[in-house]
Design a protein around this nucleic acid. Sequence first.
RNA 1: GGGGGUGUAGCUCAGGGGUAGAGCAACGGCCUUUUAAGCCGCAGGUCGAAGGUUCGAUUCCUUCCACCCUCACCA
Length: 506
Amino acid sequence: MEAIQQLRNIRLEKLRKLKELGINPYSYNFDRSHLTREIVENFSSLEKNEKQVSVAGRIMAIRESGKKAAFADLQDSSGKIQIYFRMDKLGEKKYEIFKLADIGDIFGIKGVVFKTRTGEITIFAEDIEILAKTLRPLPVVKEKKVDGKSVFYDQFSDTDLRYRMRYVDLIVNPAVKNVFIKRSKIIESMRKFLTDRGYLEVETPILQPIYGGASARPFVTYHNALDMKLYLRIANELYLKRLIVGGFDGVFEFSKDFRNEGMDRMHNPEFTQMELYIAYHDYEFMMKLVEEMMYRIAIEVNNSPILKFQGMEADLTPPWKRISLYDAIKDETGYELMNKTKEEIIEISEKLDVSIEKFWAKGKIVEEIFSECVEHKIIQPTFITDFPIEISPLAKKKRGNPQLTERFEQYILGKEVANAFSELNDPIDQKERFLDQMEQLKAGDEEAQVLDEDYIMALEYGLPPTTGIGIGIDRLTMLFTDSPSIRDVILFPHMRPIKKETDDQL
RNA sequence: GGGGGUGUAGCUCAGGGGUAGAGCAACGGCCUUUUAAGCCGCAGGUCGAAGGUUCGAUUCCUUCCACCCUCACCA
């Protein structure tokens, strides 16, 4: 018999004994008077009143002291508190229930608070109830307080297991929970910032007959009843702009997007973006809005405009640096690419040891040089502006230079977090841009965008001047939580399935 | 996809061509204010999977699987 089966059988036996005692080990509810943290925070008044409190949570450690007394740590969503069990207080039957407890079991506890000799805030249990019996052992992580800081021993650290069994990770690694609480706060703060300004949160299709709005390879799926291919969205841009055509002044969506490309520390096949479109404004307006929004989020979520990430620091206090793509390349590499021919730029890319494909459009090569040579060096928040027209098919031409577009990407701590334009609203220009993309697609660029006739038609009904942006929520969360991998900020990151060997038997 | 690394008990990790080791958890004792609790005892493993070399492989070789790092493509 496997060892894990033995451990499980012992727990099944305890389960049987509980039932024998007339206990339902999977209870229906439990009234809590406090979270554990609230007890710690209000200790002195709770101790003085000697009022009974009730808490519920998971037993994380048991320290027996003789046959008739024991301490345990109980963990709930807010933290941990120590519980003191004693037979003379609980009575024999309830103490027997406690004796059948394993680490991981979920209990409801009623009792009064006191401090032990060593000063630990503790609940003296007067009544207990098992709420859920566990059948599998939790990894036991030991924590020691040294000068107020926690030192962990035997921390559950296998990333593979942590991602596959995120529920276990969340139970035993409190820092992990904080990452996801912060992720939620970032989204909440952003949503509030936008709705406070009157922008409307909307929902647009994930299943799309034509994918668009970004340069990426899509996932393909199939609708049986309609007998047609559908794509999982790679962006929601074109739908949101249809809504601006429809008369909304500002719309945004937090959207799951799907891109059928490589996975690494920065990329998960499904990821979250916030896209926002605002009528009657241009990308200058959007830069100001982004600065203000990010600064506000930092203050609300981190209480500081300073972001610390992997030993780097960035200050989100506006205004941020603005520099054009070409100037940024020139400053970093010394090469002026503006007004150079494609051949000259290919030559420069070879000198810079940047590998490119010959069929790429000139602008794509320029962008590649930027991402290889410049991107990772941008630490302070920076707007990189004015991208080549060939790689920006949805952006308006720059006033005064038709080879460029009014587009910016926002970089910080070496990462791109946002991409925005003055949106192209000239239907004839837009159609030409799409046709040019189709040429690039034919030339072999699998990420080139495809022609969306319905979107062109929407533009022919008139899109007001509009600015739009997409912000990568996963990456933003990485920066705010100092997480080096995107998998650390996605609760259930995509993992290859493990071949199932044998099913566990009950 | 290329290169490098890892995979040993539920968890964290040692080890190494000749019947597998520790700590924590579990199980049995002792202890009614302990806290990485302590003390005594006991159990737990097809050493990621499959082949090969060998008298003998968990160890060496090959292939495969998963994860991590890195490069390539992308947000």
